[in-house]
């Protein structure tokens, strides 16, 4: 039971970080960067490749994280800014970000070949035995990084003027710009943070999933599902969606059957979309209203 929970939270944190990468970009620019999964792949494969060339693990990881961050910004300038400049309300970014995802994937497939590459096992070799469950140090690190990502994000968003201006841009970029917000700078920042978070997820899951040029598809889709569950409007909620997806997938695997993780996430998303179209953590949705109504009823009953 504890093992299911902890394993689920670890997997869920990875999905959550990818979902956050999606959400941060969407938060500021209202664009879904469909190359987010590929940014995760880039950090894994670059680390694998650099370590194979003889670089120390930490240096490989550092360079890979910088690369995924920079690549996030490049995606903005190559695939998003030009199409939004042409028409601010167009959905052309759907095609352009998907297109750049294919280009990144094909490029890495040419450089690294199609087969998976070993990833430094690092902290994943060290088990930590708890009563009723075993985790590795890498998995504990994953949980900590996930918590820090949410905490850091919320702290910046709520407690700093930079974060509050970001919030203002998110809700009304036009008016925010008339009060001095440089919307482009924020968009660049959002794509950089998105790239960094996706890269971070890659580094954390690398020892488990290895480096493969086609990985972006699987993690991109899982992250997107987590985003749908948590709600696209708030990055912290996206992490919540990841955790829900992770725990319920592993639980479905354990208690329903090994193939349940195949269809279960989609059933989950369907349920969420029916009950809470804006995500489980969005305010004002029917799921919340349902709970609120029920709780007010019980209060009324007592009175």
């Amino acid at each position: 039971m504890l093992q299911v929970l902890l394993s689920g939270l670890t997997v869920g944190t990875i999905y959550g970080l990818v979902a956050m990468a999606f959400a941060v970009v969407f938060y500021v620019t209202k664009v879904v960067n469909f190359a987010t999964g590929q940014l995760l792949m880039v950090s894994i494969l670059l680390t694998a490749g650099l370590v194979r060339l003889g670089l120390p693990d930490w240096l490989g990881v550092g360079i890979a994280l910088i690369a995924s961050t920079v690549l996030g910004v490049i995606i903005y300038f190559v695939a998003v800014r030009p199409v939004l400049k042409f028409d601010r309300f167009s959905f052309a970014w759907l095609v352009s970000t998907l297109g750049i995802a294919i280009v990144i994937q094909a490029t890495f497939a040419i450089i690294f070949g199609p087969a998976s590459q070993p990833f430094p096992r690092g902290l994943h070799q060290i088990p930590v035995h708890l009563p009723g469950a075993t985790l590795t140090v890498q998995e504990i690190l994953t949980l900590v990084v996930g918590a820090l990502a949410v905490l850091g994000w919320e702290l910046v968003r709520r407690k700093t003027l930079v974060g509050k201006l970001g919030m203002a841009i998110s809700t009304d970029p036009e008016i925010a710009s008339t009060f001095g917000a440089n919307v482009t700078a924020y968009a660049v920042g959002a794509f950089a943070i998105g790239g960094f978070l996706a890269g971070l997820a890659g580094i954390l899951v690398g020892p488990i999933t290895y480096g493969n040029p086609y990985l972006g598809d699987t993690y991109g889709i899982s992250g997107f599902i987590a985003l749908m569950i948590g709600g696209i409007q708030r990055p912290a909620a996206a992490m919540g969606g990841g955790l829900i997806l992770g725990v319920l997938s592993i639980a479905a695997n354990s208690y329903i059957g090994a193939q349940a993780s195949d269809w279960f996430p989609f059933v989950l998303v369907l349920l969420v979309l029916l009950l809470a179209p804006n995500g489980v953590f969005a305010s004002g949705d029917s799921l919340r209203k349902l709970f609120r109504r029920r709780s007010s009823l019980t209060v009324g009953g007592r009175a």
Partner: peptide
Amino acid sequence: RRLFVGQSVEDNLRLGGMRLR
């Protein structure tokens, strides 16, 4: 009016004074 949603009155004012921060 288009005030910044989800932010307090004072935050709205301080965001108005962004350039003088």
